[in-house]
Simulated assay, not measured.
Amino acid sequence: MVWNQFWLRTLEIWLTTRLLRSPIFHQMVGRVHQRVQHIRHGIPPEPSRTSLENNESSFNKFIKYFKEEIKDQVKGNPRNKL
């Protein structure tokens, strides 16, 4: 009886290892996770075209924001932009 349990446990470990290494299993888990997130939080909105068409670089955005902050601080009224 002990040998039967040993072989069953060995088979279980081998099957579990194969399952966890399978890319199909990970894809399936990803899809289930995505569906659960959609149910919990709703379907996320699609990105708008205006956000995709705005090709301003992040450096230019930083410079623009930095200039605004300096102007506000010179005037003496820094504001919370969040």
Rank of each mutant, 00 (worst) to 15 (best):
M1P: 00
M1N: 03
Q5W: 04
F6A: 15
W7T: 02
W7Y: 01
R9M: 08
T10W: 08
T10V: 03
L11K: 05
L11C: 03
L11S: 10
L11W: 05
E12K: 13
E12S: 14
I13C: 12
W14F: 15
W14L: 15
W14D: 10
R18N: 06
R18L: 14
L20N: 06
P23W: 08
P23R: 13
I24L: 09
I24A: 09
I24W: 14
F25E: 13
H26F: 04
Q27I: 02
Q27K: 15
M28C: 08
V29I: 08
G30E: 05
R35M: 04
V36A: 14
V36M: 02
Q37K: 02
H38A: 10
H38V: 04
H38R: 15
R40L: 12
I43A: 03
P45W: 10
P47Q: 12
R49M: 13
T50K: 15
S51Y: 02
L52Y: 12
L52D: 10
E53C: 07
N54M: 11
N55R: 11
N55W: 00
E56D: 01
E56K: 07
S57M: 05
N60F: 11
K64I: 01
K64Q: 11
K67C: 10
I70P: 05
K71H: 00
D72W: 02
V74I: 14
V74T: 03
G76D: 01
P78E: 03
P78N: 06
R79E: 07
L82G: 15
L82K: 11
